[in-house]
Structures are given as C-alpha cells and as structure tokens.
C-alpha cells in the first residue's frame, strides 16, 4: 500500500509538470489530433476497397490512436527521462529515501493516463469531424490493446534513454526511429498504397503490429471478441526486450 501511495504522489507531480510543459502538450496531445485532421483533409473520405470498403477517415482513427499512444509512451518517456537524467534530477532523487523505481513509475503512470485520454480524444474527434463509428462494442479489445501496447512502448522508451547521450539528442533520436516506422506501417499513408514487401518488413517492428492490433480492435464489421493475438504478442515481445535492456542499461546519472 505504501508503494502505491508513493507512486501516486510521484504521478500527481508528473501530471502537473506534463500539463505545464507547452512542448509536451503540443507534441503529445495536439499534434496527433492535427494529423487526423490533415490526413482526413488530404486523403478525403473515399472507401478503401482492399479493406472491406471502410472510409479512409475510419481507417485513420486507429492509425492516429497508434501514433498518439507511441508518442505519449515511448517518445515522451525517452525524452522526459533523458532530460531528468541530464539535469541531475534523477541523481538528486536517488539521494532521498524514495525507492528509485518510483521515479520511473510516476512518469509511466503519466504516460499511460495520457495514452488512455488520447484514445478517447482521437476517437471522439473522428466521430465528430468524420462520423467514424465509435466502437463501443469493442471497448474491451481496445482497452486490452492499449494496456499491452502502452506497457510495451513504455519499456522501449525507458530502454531508449540508454542510447540517447544528451537532452538535445532526445527528440532527434526518437524521431529518427518513429517517423520512418509511421510511414512504413500504414500510419501516415493508407496501407493499400504501400507495397506488400514494405508492409511485411514493417511487420518486424512494434509500430506496425500495434497498429494492426488497434485496427482489428476498432473493426466495426466484426462481432464478438476480436483480438489480433499474433500482433499483440509481437508488441509484447518487443516490450519485454525493452524491459530487459532497460533493466540492464538504464543510467540514473549523466555520463561523467
């Protein structure tokens, strides 16, 4: 119980810091919504025949949800933890009686809560602007995908800090990793425009798998419990690898 109380204390302040930082609010909250509007405007709302004739905007809702969750978890954590490490905040915190894991837990909690919020926001904006259906029936599958995906991308974000040498390098390195994957995985461009070989290659990485899992979970034509287990398993495997690397290589202090 004490552990939960400590983690909640840290989480409360992580939330304050997150919402006061114009950079994190813009890139994590506003930019995904902006992307949904831009893609909806550029690519119009024609049905995608190869995907059972769903409207393009309906396609983009799970795509942008994927981007928003990756951004709120992996990208935010990598940038935030690197900044805290380089500023000496983690080192300073480790000099207190607080168990070290709490400093990570508070930030992970923040990432998960913002992710959940973004799922709701992107889904609602899709509904309001484009009439994309809200898949109420599939809420359990969406929640399951969100939980496994958010946890996995949090682990990857913590692991990434090990290869980010400085605060300045953090946005560049995370962008170099995520932007190509968004393009190759059908997050930015509808997948019927992407060659099969490219999609197969993207399928080796967690972003594509996470998107496939969300796409299936959002699928309005399915009844019953529809989960893309293989994709979710691939995401979880990446997350586990991230966890192992994070435990092994995470640093609390700047390199001397």
């Amino acid at each position: 119980m004490t552990s939960i109380r400590l983690a909640l204390h840290e989480f409360r302040f992580s939330q304050k810091i997150f919402w006061r930082n114009p950079g994190s609010v813009f890139f994590t909250v506003l930019l995904p919504v902006l992307f949904l509007v831009i893609f909806g405007t550029i690519f119009g709302n024609d049905p995608i025949d190869t995907l059972g004739g769903i409207p393009t905007t309906t396609y983009y809702v799970p795509a942008i949800v994927t981007l928003a969750v990756v951004s709120a978890t992996m990208v935010s954590l990598a940038v935030n933890l690197t900044t805290a490490r380089e500023a000496g905040l983690l080192k300073r915190g480790r000099g207190t009686p607080q168990p070290s894991w709490v400093f990570i837990a508070g930030r992970v909690g923040n990432a998960v809560v913002v992710s959940a919020l973004m799922v709701v926001v992107v889904t609602l904006v899709g509904k309001l602007l484009y009439g994309a259906p809200v898949p109420w029936r599939h809420a359990p599958e969406i929640a399951l995908t969100l939980v496994i995906g958010a946890a996995s991308f949090c682990c990857l974000g913590v692991a990434l800090t090990a290869i980010i040498p400085s605060r300045e390098a953090a946005p560049a390195i995370t962008n170099v990793i995520t932007l190509p994957l968004y393009f190759l995985s059908g997050v930015f461009i509808p997948e019927n425009e992407i060659p099969d070989g490219v999609l197969a290659f993207a399928g080796l990485f967690p972003v594509r798998n996470f998107f496939e899992a969300f796409f299936t979970a959002y699928g309005s034509d399915t009844t019953g419990f529809s989960v893309e287990w293989l994709s979710l398993l691939a995401v979880a495997a990446w997350g586990l690898a991230g966890l192992v690397l994070a435990v092994r290589f995470f640093r609390w202090t700047p390199k001397p």
Binding site: K16, I17, N21, A87, L89, G95
Partner: peptide, 10 residues
C-alpha cells in the same frame, strides 16, 4: 549536489 537540479515547472 554541486549542480543545482530542480523541476523548473514546479
């Protein structure tokens, strides 16, 4: 510590 470390937004 030798270097001041503060959460600037708090």
């Amino acid at each position: 510590l030798q270097e001041t470390a503060l959460e600037t937004l708090l």
